[in-house]
Design a protein around this nucleic acid. Structure first.
Length: 615
RNA sequence: GCGGGUGUAGCUCAGUUGGUUAGAGUAUCGGCCUGUCACGCCGAGGGUCGCGGGUUCGAGUCCCGUCACUCGCGCCA
């Protein structure tokens, strides 16, 4: 007989009755009736009820054992009487009568309870993540993640993509996010940077002639966190040679749609080949965002032209000064109180916006200060143009175009949520395309790249030479699903002459480009195929499929919101010797911070030890 | 860096207008219990009310500061 088990805890059923078996697992729960004891024995696969009565030598042992201890049970499979069958358990028709028990590992008192759905503070969960990961929901999330990654791999390989690894210790490059740096021991004063993405390497793989590359690529960005943003994350990074934007779309849509259909649990998914393509400019107008949630039916309209002359002076002034007015419908809000509209305005101010105007409409009757000043006839005209009904309210976001669009977008989301208009049980994909190549940087008072400097401008050299830079679009595209940016990609600029020209427009000389991107420029001078790709974020994909609001719920060992590993204690202090090795001397400020942290930690550890010792 | 929320027993939470010894559930420990599956019943231990100031006869409660966690803004091509 195997040392630990003949079956897993999900394996036994009616057909095994009468067998002698050996099971191993965690003591998930106990129900002690004095003369008879029930133990739910749990492993990765499932749960089996163990029974011991006064005839069994296992009874006194199991009685004393704390939950989450690990045991091996020798026993006999018995059919449960019909009235005590548990229909909620796959093994619910049987139970194992324990003849013997071996304690493999004795658990002490637990910081969190595995057999409960109760929510624990994230701090506790992360500190004891190995316990937290035993809990059903997170355990399932991590398994789902594994399955999603496996499916993505298979789908990419089936399409002729080859998986390659790229370096983790790379060179820092000036643009983009803040790098995580690794000091070099062999080269005093020099640093490696962890990849923000294997961008350059995948392009170089195309130059090297590999044609179709992908990788489940770890990426690192030293920026502040969000619910959907971790400093280390994974992308399905891919790149293809001799392709147009259309080819990239056709390659990745079936992969994403396929994976979502496979794991969505019955939710509908935008079919491959039918992802809507929304130009950036249209997205900013209609949704006030470059990552619109298409489950929300509300669409924003520009109504500036209605207010060029209006009794409502504020809007007239804004439009006269080059600003815009955007309208966000609030359908069927005739029954909503004034409080609803006022609270939206309060909310917008709290969010740091200028404020949200509104018009109410009840049975065709307009209400609110804007309607009063603008006049009912003018309002009716506006409503007709927007196709709004007799009981639809309307919010207004006014100001500089960028600010108004952003406010309108936030208001659209909030209105959709409050009015419960967000369609459930679906994944709605879209492409955002035609991103502008350049934008005017108000702070630096100059034209700069608006996205990725290595994207090919639409119209290529001709556009760069003959168009207003701010009108030039890029072959740059995002995939968005339910309001989350899943992926960013581009057809790359593989032509050194066009590259130099693009950088020139953004105010960089040829020397600047050579100094910072020499590797890639050199490569492009030695025979480079046209190429492009993208990189869907795996954590976000799993987060959506697991229906979790937070990326940490689908990462086995996530960093917390301040980028710390509460379990292992990263980032940690290192010895003076280690610092010497890598030629690093700490600033006075850093030493001071260390001292403070050190004192705090010692106190903390002492108190923990005292608790354990029962003081 | 800025703003919001939270912080009371190991854990989840309650705690009235500022007023006696800060409560409940759960976990832990002890006792009882032969069909439970969130088993049940009886009992016990367990508190720096995040921390530091202040106001007050009196602060978990009010004020100021600070820390931690979290959500958002900035940031993230």
């Amino acid at each position: 007989m195997h040392a630990y088990r003949t079956h897993t805890c999900a394996a036994l059923n009616q057909s095994d009755v009468g067998q002698s078996v050996r099971l191993s697992g965690w003591v998930h729960n106990k129900r002690d009736h004095g003369g008879v004891l029930f133990v739910d024995l749990r492993d990765h696969y499932g749960m089996t009820q163990i029974v011991a009565d006064s005839d069994s030598p296992a009874l006194p042992v199991l009685e004393k054992l704390k939950l989450e201890s690990v045991v091996t049970i020798d026993g006999d499979v018995k059919a449960r009487a019909p009235e005590v069958v548990n229909p909620n358990l796959p093994t619910g028709e049987i139970e194992v009568f324990a003849r013997e028990v071996t304690i493999q590992s004795r658990a002490e008192e637990l910081p969190l309870i595995v057999n409960s759905a109760e929510d624990y503070p994230e701090e506790t969960r992360l500190k004891y993540r190995f316990v937290d990961l035993r809990r059903e929901r997170v355990h399932n999330n991590i398994v789902l993640r594994s399955q999603v990654i496996s499916s993505l791999r298979q789908r990419m390989i089936a399409q002729g993509f080859n998986e390659f690894q790229t370096p983790i210790l790379g060179a820092s490059s000036p643009e983009g996010a803040r790098d995580y740096l690794v000091p070099s021991r062999l080269h005093p004063g020099r640093f490696y940077a962890l990849p923000q993405a294997p961008q350059m390497f995948k392009q170089l793989l195309m130059v090297a002639g590999f044609d179709r590359y992908f990788q489940i690529a770890p990426c690192f960005r030293d920026e502040d966190l969000r619910a959907d943003r971790s400093p280390e994350f994974y992308q399905l990074d891919f790149e293809m040679s001799f392709v147009t934007q259309e080819d990239v779309f056709q390659a990745i849509e079936p992969v994403l749609a396929g994976v979502f259909e496979e794991f969505s649990g019955g939710k509908t998914v935008t079919p491959a080949g039918e992802f809507p393509r929304i130009p950036y400019k249209e997205a900013m107008l209609k949704y006030g965002s470059d990552k619109p949630d298409l489950r929300n039916p509300i669409e924003i309209s520009d109504v500036s032209h209605h207010f060029t002359s209006s009794g409502f002076g504020i809007f007239e002034k804004i439009v006269g000064g080059g600003g815009v007015v955007r309208a966000i419908p609030a359908p069927n809000t005739a029954e909503k109180s004034r409080k609803f509209f006022d609270e939206m305005n309060d909310w917008s101010k709290k969010e740091g916006f200028a404020g949200l105007g509104y018009v109410t409409r009840k049975g065709g009757e307009f209400g609110g200060p804007i309607a009063k000043n603008h006049g009912p006839e003018n309002m009716a005209k506006l409503y007709e143009e927007l196709g709004l009904g007799e009981n639809d309210g309307l919010f207004f976001a006014a100001g500089k175009e960028k600010d108004a669009a952003k406010l309108a977008g936030a208001a659209r989301t909030r209105t959709g949520e409050i009015l419960e208009l967000i369609e459930e049980n679906c994944f709605k994909f879209c492409w955002i395309v035609d991103f502008p190549m350049f934008e005017y940087d108000e702070d630096l008072k100059k034209v700069d790249f608006s996205h990725n400097p290595f994207s090919m401008p639409q119209g290529e050299m001709d556009a760069l030479e003959n168009s207003d830079p701010l009108d030039i679009l890029a072959w740059q595209y995002d995939i968005v699903c339910n309001g989350y940016e899943l992926s960013s990609g581009a057809i790359r600029n593989h032509r050194p002459d066009i590259m130099y020209k693009a950088f020139e427009i953004a105010g960089y000389t040829q020397e600047d480009v050579d100094a910072n991107f020499s590797g890639m420029i050199e490569a492009f001078k030695l025979g480079a195929p046209p190429h492009g790709g993208s990189a869907p974020g795996i954590d976000r994909i799993v987060m959506l499929l697991a229906d979790e609001p937070n990326i940490r719920e689908v990462i086995a060992f996530p960093l917390n919101q301040r980028a710390q590993d509460l379990m292992m204690g990263a980032p940690s202090m290192v010895s003076a010797r280690q610092l010497r090795d890598v030629h690093i001397r700490l600033s006075g400020e850093a030493v001071e911070a260390q001292k403070e942290a050190s004192t705090a930690e010692k106190t903390d550890m002492n108190s923990n030890a005292a608790e354990r010792d029962g003081e």
